[in-house]
């Protein structure tokens, strides 16, 4: 494991912890898209089907369990927690995420390594992760104002993507048999989706003002 991948994993973990902290501390999930959170939970569950069949390292297994549990906990809080669920912006969170799921499923059925249950769902999770942030970005766009913790959540998520791309470049240069193709393209798509957000995040940070997205 190289430093870029480790930094990517850590910023990914921090983004989830920031989100849990926001929900726990403010008892509110305002500005958070339930649809994006459901998609991430689905991404982790379908990608880590190998949890019990292929052992890579204790680090990998622990992180997989942590990601599945924390993403499920967030979805549970937003749907079921007596107080938290009241602050959910249902009227603004109208992205048709089922179409993303169906589109990724069709793509995974066409483009995959091997036609097995695990491999198809692994490919599905890679494609879905690339677009899972869309409902969240649309929700931020619609609500205009972004509170600090929500802004930091998306910031860390974007940092995770940037570190993973550096990791792939590093692996491409140092490992003989490392070829990316489809995963790299999905990774680039996912990272590009953040570019717009990062621009406004930078502007608000530079001016030391509240993050506001144009409508």
């Amino acid at each position: 494991m190289n430093i870029f991948r480790f930094a990517g994993d850590m910023t990914h973990l921090i983004s989830i912890l920031v989100l849990l902290l926001k929900i726990y501390a403010t008892k509110s999930c305002a500005g958070i898209s339930l649809k994006t959170q459901e998609l991430y939970a689905l991404v982790f569950v379908t990608r880590y089907l190998d949890l019990f069949t292929d052992f890579i390292s204790v680090y990998n297994s622990v992180m997989k369990v942590v990601f599945i549990l924390t993403s499920s906990a967030i979805v549970w809080c937003m749907r079921r927690h007596r107080i938290v669920k009241r602050s959910y912006d249902q009227a603004l969170d109208t992205f048709r995420h089922l179409f993303l799921v169906l589109g990724c499923l069709v793509l995974a059925l066409i483009v995959h390594d091997k036609f097995t249950f695990q491999e198809v769902f692994w490919a599905f999770s890679i494609y879905l992760e690339a677009v899972a942030i869309l409902p969240q970005l649309v929700l931020l766009q619609r609500s205009g104002n972004v509170d600090n913790l929500t802004g930091q959540y998306v910031f860390f998520l974007g940092a995770y993507r940037a570190f993973y791309i550096l990791n792939w470049i590093y692996r491409y240069l140092t490992e003989q048999h490392f070829r990316l193709w489809i995963s790299c393209i999905s990774g680039l798509v996912q990272t590009a989706l953040y570019a717009d957000f990062f621009y406004y995040y930078y502007i608000s940070w530079k001016n030391n003002s509240k993050l506001q997205l144009p409508s």
């Binding site: 190998d50 390594d113 692994w122 490392f178 070829r179 995963s183």
Partner: peptide, 10 residues
């Protein structure tokens, strides 16, 4: 395969 190289990642 072209994807298996990423199986050791998260």
């Amino acid at each position: 395969g072209y994807m298996s190289a990423l199986k050791d990642e998260l």
